[in-house]
């Protein structure tokens, strides 16, 4: 729920000396992404995607670096980043499993599937396994209603899922 305000007042920012937005990444973004847009701010979503792609999630320090890079206030970057569910402001597991729960998937057995995955991993939706390997989430429509039920595992879409097969898929993930 995008509109739920996340209380960040008083949060301490963990810092490290090494930047998240590395000079190499900056150079790449300056060459490939910034020229696409008439304003720097418009590059914010692609830049957030790029940093998250490298680091897996978006620490506060990374948001500050992105703000400096795009001439924005850190609050503006946080405002945007916190609106979108794909941007992770907290660490997530190595494998993010997003099980679609919208209508076609629910009609085709999503509830049972989610329950089985949840039991197998020993976590409820919204949680990460203690070893940091899997994060389980429910998702709204993934645009795959004709092959329901479906789930995204990181960037890979799994369609027409049968619980036993899917459990085997999860087992093969390194």
């Amino acid at each position: 729920m995008a509109w739920i305000a996340k209380n960040s007042a008083g949060a301490t920012i963990v810092r490290r000396s090494e930047p998240y937005l590395t000079p190499a990444l900056k150079a790449k973004l300056e060459a490939d992404v910034l020229p696409r847009y008439p304003t720097k701010r418009a590059a914010l979503l692609p830049v957030l995607h790029a940093v998250q792609h490298e680091h897996h999630w978006l620490p506060a320090q990374a948001l500050e670096e992105i703000a400096a890079f795009l001439d924005l206030a850190p609050a503006q970057v946080l405002d945007t980043a916190s609106f979108y569910e794909e941007f992770w402001l907290n660490p997530k597991g190595k494998y993010l499993i997003m099980v679609c729960q919208s209508l076609s998937c629910e009609l085709m057995g999503q509830k049972g599937l989610l329950g089985k995955i949840s039991r197998k991993l020993g976590i409820a939706p919204g949680q990460t396994t203690p070893d940091g390997k899997y994060t389980l989430m429910t998702a709204e429509c993934l645009g795959s209603c004709g092959s329901a039920p479906c789930a995204l595992v990181n960037e890979v879409l799994h369609e027409n899922i049968r619980a036993d097969n899917f459990e085997r898929v999860l087992d093969t993930l390194e």
């Binding site: 995008a2 696409r36 979503l45 692609p46 957030l48 995607h49 609106f83 979108y84 569910e85 794909e86 941007f87 709204e140 429509c141």
Partner: peptide, 13 residues
């Protein structure tokens, strides 16, 4: 004329 892909980030709205 130019054409680019711009990726959203998980928001129906």
């Amino acid at each position: 004329p130019t054409c680019y892909v711009h990726r959203g980030a998980g928001a129906y709205i």
